[in-house]
Amino acid sequence: MSVLETQSVSIRFGGVFANTDVSIKVGEWEIVGVIGPNGAGKTTAFNIVTGFYKPDRGRVLYKGRDITNLAVHERTALGMGRTFQNVGLVKGSTVRENLVSAQYLEADYSTLAGMLGSPRTFVSEAELRKRGDAVAEVMGLGEFLDRQVAGLPYGVLKRVEIATVLATDPDVLLLDEPSSGMGPEEAHDLGDTLLELRREFGLSIAMIEHHVPLVVRVCDYVYCLNFGQLLAEGLPEEVRNHPQVVTAYLGEDAEDPALQKVEEKLETLLDTD
């Protein structure tokens, strides 16, 4: 059974078809890549999967359950973890504080108990911190724990973001361009990390990625989107050499400016929400 699945999902913004009949599957223990030119609708697909958009048509399934109408936070509770293209972190806080913040659902006390300061909450808080530190260690971020997020280099931020998502205790990770802002070497290390995460925690991963060597190395299966539609799918090597994919990446009309503009606008809208 697939962990995550979209069935013929379509969504339209104004007159722009951002996703049309997109069907993607992520199996257990699988690492799935989603590629495509800018403005192909990849992030839109992620936003539908994680619940930021409701599709006009189609369904989203999680472990066989229809979650199309669930809110973002409810999907997090089910075990869905997601990173953002432009880094989703609390920039005014330290890395450790972010890691503790991310464990919102892991805290085993009620909001009211926390406010009243019941002794139990002090114990729980210490546990959350310890767990956060452990996650940071896994991602090789121990040295940054007390640093404020706002001052860190982009490549580090991307890793911090993955760490915070891991702290939410997910079963499936959705990573939006995890290697952006990284050099080739860092990207290679990231690949190792992802493979290790799967091995250690049994995670399934879906990732939007431009860095082809990384995709080819870690992905079991790849989807290519173009103009909001699936152009090709298959093993990484197959997709990479697929004639239509090559044209899409090389061709002049590869990028849909209208769609790209819509996606960018929606992103800023969501950010300032």
Partner: peptide, 17 residues
Amino acid sequence: RALLALRENPRVASTFG
């Protein structure tokens, strides 16, 4: 902590659950 995350970025807060 959730409030602080929310003020800065509601999307991030919602992915924290």
